[in-house]
Design a protein around this nucleic acid. Sequence first.
DNA 1: GTCAATTTGACAATCATTCTCATCGCGGCT
DNA 2: AGCCGCGATGAGAATGATTGTCAAATTGAC
Lengths: 140, 140
Amino acid sequence: MNAAPPLPVPAQPAPRMTRQRAAVVEALDGLDDFRSAQQLHEELRTRGDSVGLATVYRTLQALAEAREVDVLRNDEGESLYRRCTRREHHHHLVCRVCGRTVEIDGPTVEAWAAKVGAAQGFSDIDHTVELWGTCADCRA
Amino acid sequence: MNAAPPLPVPAQPAPRMTRQRAAVVEALDGLDDFRSAQQLHEELRTRGDSVGLATVYRTLQALAEAREVDVLRNDEGESLYRRCTRREHHHHLVCRVCGRTVEIDGPTVEAWAAKVGAAQGFSDIDHTVELWGTCADCRA
DNA sequence: GTCAATTTGACAATCATTCTCATCGCGGCT
DNA sequence: AGCCGCGATGAGAATGATTGTCAAATTGAC
């Protein structure tokens, strides 16, 4: 449990462009649903752009910090990554069968979260809001 | 990814009451914030009601399935458990510094989630909504 | 009490993720 | 084009939470 000061980001030194980083980004661009680091690693191997597993993890982590990809945790606690269309804050509706993802805009929830938090005397309110369901195609 | 049929619960055979199970429940009752299995295990050791770590995990898992305790994941992906006051569906506002927890009722969000899910053609909509913040006492 | 079925606990095994460290290669500079 | 410093990479070890194993201990019904 540690309190990190809010975001006046120290402006990271911009990562070098390497074959590996490019491959990861490209793979993510070609996919439309959330994938785990392991799945991405496999995908890359299949494509022939083999990249070390540790590197896949490091790259995804970096991309996530740079807000280039979104991260969420599945039921098992695994991290799943996805290159999202909108860079602004948003949520997701994910099919728990096939992983199909829809980006959701939730002004209602944002407001609600902020209000509730403040009402209880909490500050620096942050929220986790994800929706899971079975998409039409996966409806047996 | 597997689709589990909805809840006509097969009515589990009601677990036996053992010293260990009682100790875990009692410890949970005495606490007011979310704790990890490991922390609970330590707490029990301290109290003198030592219980095997594996048993703590199994018990918490069982309690969670029986909806006797709530579970949520922290940033590191660890599972945290808590004996909640209300048994009905609700959410939490948790202090990321001290773990202090406030149970939140969110009819607004429930409705929003259901509506959004349906609008996208998804069924069996489920949602994850947790709020994190810094409570008044932890505000330096 | 007796006895079968559960539960427990010490320890091994999993598994995602991170760390280590020697080697590689990007990119600014000449 | 060549040089070079330092970030990036990868193979494998290490970590750490959680789960599996299985013999021994307990529970609860009769």
